[in-house]
């Protein structure tokens, strides 16, 4: 017989995994443009890094969801089922939020680095030799 606890677990797993997939797909779709810019238009490299980031995202989130499955109260009626489910999914959403902002931070850091590479000198020279210097 399927108890309230088992229904809670099933609901928790379905909702959490669905949320994880939705966030990962959003990241994958919208993060690509950031990465292409960060890798100076190298689309192959950007796609590869994007894919690897999404794999890491799935591993961490699904890992957390499965680990946290058995923790929490054992519900005995429908009200407790909803409360437990809400608490557990709330934690998953917080983890997803932290991971999402971490990914955004990584993307923006990569982009900033790429912009730094092409940056002109930040100070003007105080003198000029009047001819280039040969680097031999």
């Amino acid at each position: 017989m399927i108890t309230h606890t088992v229904w809670t677990y099933i609901g928790y797993l379905v909702i959490s995994v669905a949320l994880t997939i939705w966030v990962a797909r959003t990241l994958h779709k919208n993060g690509r443009i950031f990465l292409v810019d960060s890798f100076l238009g190298n689309e192959k490299l950007a796609d590869s890094v994007n894919h690897l980031l999404v794999v890491g995202f799935y591993l961490i989130n699904i890992g957390y969801v499965t680990l946290a499955l058995k923790y929490g109260d054992r519900p005995s009626d429908l009200q407790q089922v909803l409360e437990t489910l809400s608490t557990k999914i709330g934690f998953v959403l917080l983890v997803l939020g932290v991971m999402h902002f971490f990914n955004l931070y990584v993307f923006s850091k990569m982009r900033r680095r790429a912009l730094l590479r092409g940056q002109p000198p930040p100070v003007i020279p105080q003198a000029h030799l009047g001819q280039p210097v040969v680097a031999s």
């Binding site: 020279p125 105080q126 680097a135």
Partner: peptide, 29 residues
């Protein structure tokens, strides 16, 4: 001195040294 012949001295030279480094270009700015 840059390979283009531009000369930086003093603190400007320090900034240019940091500008050359990968990890410190942001600090130079």
């Amino acid at each position: 001195v840059s390979d283009e012949g531009a000369v930086y001295r003093g603190a400007h030279a320090w900034v240019m040294c940091l500008y050359a480094l990968r990890e410190y270009r942001e600090w130079a700015s």
